[in-house]
Design a protein around this nucleic acid. Structure first.
Lengths: 200, 200
DNA sequence: AAAACTACTGACTGAACGTTCAGTCAGTAG
DNA sequence: CTACTGACTGAACGTTCAGTCAGTAGTTTT
């Protein structure tokens, strides 16, 4: 909010996120970030201890967004089936709207050497657990019939992430999976729910 | 096979694959590869034009393995349902047996700057197309009922890849999705086939 | 008005990097 | 013995990078 304090810092974070997501941790120099944000390298080191800390801050910010979506959609009362639907819809819409975030997360998962190691996976695990407990509720309510709720939750999470990943990665190649986010989200959720449903 | 000819070259390829998969293109120096394979840097440049070409060779080799599996399992005659089952089983088993390969492929997909750009995605697209035509057959035979065969194929491909990815990435974190490859492959295929089946 | 503090600059350093290259050496064919 | 090859070495190159530091300008405190 304050003009001088935090303004440059915020701009650095923003630019760093865009660059890291496109070229990866090693592919971006501190000087790149400084220049692109209209600052000096010294200022970057004034605000962030080192390059790793800056990267960590960017990832942490993105993760917070996703987690908030999971909590909001899965945590509200309602039928399991509806909560899952709204989770998939909003989660996919969020990531589709921020391609840089999705790319950044994929990168930070694969770059074991990169900080924070395993952080993204840990957060993903809590989202999967949240999904799992909703599926467990569905089983208890007799709406779902599935032998392993955790595996089912993982599968759903996999579907959501990979469909978005495919879209994000295809863009630079000029390909397209076709259909809007909403359409693909619905198709995917239907597929999953049919696979998981207590077939009447 | 021959002792002197190709032996050093093969060793370099092997070591490069292991290192690239763990630390990424930028995280590994040519000198690292030379030292780890017991050679000089000069020899690496004797066998490979440059670092990019070496990386490309490693990725290409891995892709060939996967494509061969897809062709073999999906190309043979038989019921669509059985071909899909055997594809999932063998594809997942192959990747689970070679964690380095899976990691390398994920990396090469995310590292747009890295060579060959988009190559892995293109190959994935052909596998998805192969899956799609099997699903189309299933629809024609009245075994499947699904509105978008391409999207369904993408979803299946997503499931396979992400479940394996999860396993591969979890390992260094000491977590585990539980169950053997076969069990998880079967659970996953059932989920998918039930979602896609012409519910009787 | 002096001192202290915050935000910031840009020149600089030492290490590490990809790549090149002159040269060694075992082997082979004539 | 000569001419030649293909595999291989290791030092050296130019460049890039993360991180440092002395210093400046503006504001706030004493």
């Amino acid at each position: 909010m304050s003009q001088s304090e935090g303004s440059a810092r915020g701009r650095i974070l923003e630019v760093a996120g865009a660059l890291f997501s496109e070229r990866g941790f090693d592919g971006v120099s501190v000087s790149d970030i400084a220049t692109a944000s209209g600052n000096s390298t010294g200022l970057v080191y004034y605000h962030f201890k080192d390059k790793s800390t800056l990267y960590e801050s960017v990832v942490r910010e993105g993760l917070h967004l996703l987690e908030a979506t999971a909590v909001r959609t899965l945590g509200t009362p309602g039928r399991p089936i509806d909560r899952i639907r709204s989770f998939v819809r909003e989660y996919m819409a969020l990531l589709e709207g921020q391609p840089a975030l999705m790319r950044l997360l994929i990168r930070s998962v694969t770059d074991v050497s990169t900080p924070p190691p395993g952080h993204v996976l840990m957060r993903s695990a809590t989202t999967i657990e949240r999904l799992q407990s909703v599926i467990d509720e569905g089983i208890a309510a007799g709406e779902f019939r599935v032998t392993d709720a955790h595996l089912a939750a993982t599968a759903l999470f996999a579907l959501v992430n990979t469909l978005i990943t495919a879209r994000v990665l295809e863009t630079p190649l000029g390909q397209s999976s076709g259909g809007s986010v909403e359409e693909r989200a619905e198709f995917m959720t239907d597929l999953f729910l049919r696979g998981v449903a207590a077939c009447s």
